[in-house]
């Protein structure tokens, strides 16, 4: 009924609010470290600047080098639009939309890795290899988490699925999903977005050679992905959809803020784990989701 208003509203949330999240994280980190830190809106300034800048393209790169970030950005945006946004709901809801969401994120990963490999740089190859390899374990965790939601809501559609059950299962799921969020968005303890040593990076090293508008697309896409995972996590844990619209919106915003601050705190207080420990951490996230799934299953059968 109000889809004419709701759709632009959703679009605005995803496009305009997403770059706030990295700003908040950086602010939290600065606050913990006792610095003043960059302004919360820093990413907006960066994006505006990058959008006006010229582009330097590797002599080896094909047109796919520019198309990659564009496709990845569209894929993340499309995935985000499938996700219900508290009282605003989802743009489109059908049976199995959650699988489309997962595979849109996979498409984004494919394109990012493709664009990284365009340059023939060993560093970017390394980052791409790590990204797609760790995604194997993260995917197991995400699919398990989605199955859990599906089992406890007896539905395969996102708008009906995000009805959290109270209990210890939800707690396990929250921790598992939070770990996946950190891994998928390449935050500490999996990756350090601030590092400048190419050998140790995952995501940042893949986009080393991007510049100008394509880099803006990459950064904006990464911010949207972070917001997407935060919104998913919050709605998987809090019954946002059941609350009255105003309260739901408030709960969603507060939840996303809490998640963002938590990311910032993790980043400030934890060190990055050694590379050989990353699979262990991801497996732990997977196991948490498995236990959440078993609890949801047992609860459903009883």
């Amino acid at each position: 009924m109000n889809s004419i208003i709701a759709f632009p509203a959703r679009l605005a949330v995803w496009l305009l609010l997403a770059p706030l999240l990295p700003g908040i994280i950086n602010k939290v980190k600065a606050w913990v470290a006792g610095r003043r830190g960059p302004p919360v809106l820093q990413l907006y300034y960066d994006l505006a600047r990058l959008w006006r800048k010229g582009v330097v393209v590797s002599t080896l790169a094909s047109p796919g080098f520019i198309a990659g970030p564009a496709v990845a950005w569209v894929a993340v945006l499309a995935a985000a639009l499938l996700l219900p946004l508290g009282p605003l709901g989802a743009s489109l809801s059908f049976r199995g939309d959650v699988i489309l969401l997962l595979y849109l994120l996979a498409l984004a990963r494919f394109c990012t890795a493709w664009a990284a490999l365009e340059t023939g740089s060993a560093f970017e190859g390394m980052g791409a290899a790590r990204e797609v390899s760790f995604a194997v374990l993260a995917e197991a965790a995400v699919v398990t988490a989605v199955l859990t939601l599906s089992l406890q809501s007896r539905s395969v559609s996102l708008s009906a699925m995000l009805v959290p059950a109270a209990g210890s299962g939800t707690l396990l799921l929250a921790v598992g999903l939070f770990t996946v969020l950190l891994a998928e968005n390449c935050r500490v303890p999996f990756d350090d977005p601030n590092t400048h040593l190419e050998l140790t990076m995952i995501h940042e090293v893949m986009v080393l050679d991007h510049s100008g508008p394509p880099l803006a697309a990459v950064l904006h896409g990464a911010a949207m992905k972070l917001l997407l995972f935060s919104v998913l996590l919050v709605q998987a844990v809090l019954p946002v959809g059941k609350l009255p619209p105003a309260a739901g919106a408030g709960a969603l915003v507060a939840g996303v803020l809490v998640v963002t601050v938590a990311v910032g705190l993790v980043e400030s207080l934890m060190a990055r784990v050694a590379f050989r420990r990353v699979p262990l951490l991801l497996t732990t996230a997977f196991l948490l989701c498995v236990f959440a799934l078993l609890i949801a299953w047992k609860g459903g059968a009883a």
Binding site: L280, V290, L294
Partner: peptide, 14 residues
């Protein structure tokens, strides 16, 4: 290894 023992432990738990 840590990963296999973790998986074995989880399987044992289930």
């Amino acid at each position: 290894g840590f990963l296999p023992s973790l998986l074995l432990g989880a399987a044992g738990m289930i």
